[in-house]
Amino acid sequence: DGVAILPAPQNLSVHSTNMKHLLMWSPVVVPGEIIHYFVEYQGEYESLYMSHIWIPSSWGSPTEDPECDITDDITATVPYNLRVRASLGSQTSAWSTLQHPFNRNSTILTPPVMEVTKDGFHLVIKLEDLGPQFEFLVAYWRREPGAKEHVKVVRSRGIPVHLETMEPGVPYCVKVQTLVKAIGRHSPFSQVECVRVQGETLPL
């Protein structure tokens, strides 16, 4: 009856960076044929309270690619079970289940792309928009002996933010890290970037 003739997808893994989660697997190959894949998930709630329940992924049921963006499915900080099967016409493979449940708190966090600019005497920073769950901790200071480091938490995404009014001739440096409160973690700091306003005197 066409069940489980197709080989099940192998080598399932989740690649997660900055809260974007991609489930990947090795493709099932039948020469000259297009294979469709069906991805399903269950959170810890389902596995504890209704283990027979599996939920079709938002974007991976079906898909022709050996990968599925599960970001919209992983919406709580709990372990998720994930499984995939292949389908070709009436033929359907067995399910392959991710060996270890995936929890979004294991995502790799990287500093955002940062643009440090001068707007007249104003030190301005513009940060990459990584999504609503992200905040950024911006550290900035005057590059001179004994200078104090200032810190500002920025929530605006992709919009320039004024940090400081600069004194001419003094370099100002900036570094940034991402904060994701939903998982209680932060990224390493970015590279340091410095700018300086040429030595004009400040207007009266």
């Binding site: 959170g43 810890e44 709630y45 309270y49 939920i55 919406t75 709580a76 900080t77 709990v78």
Partner: peptide, 10 residues
């Protein structure tokens, strides 16, 4: 509802 249930679990 799954998302809510798993958040309630947390």
């Amino acid at each position: 509802t799954s998302s809510l249930a798993n958040s309630f679990l947390t």
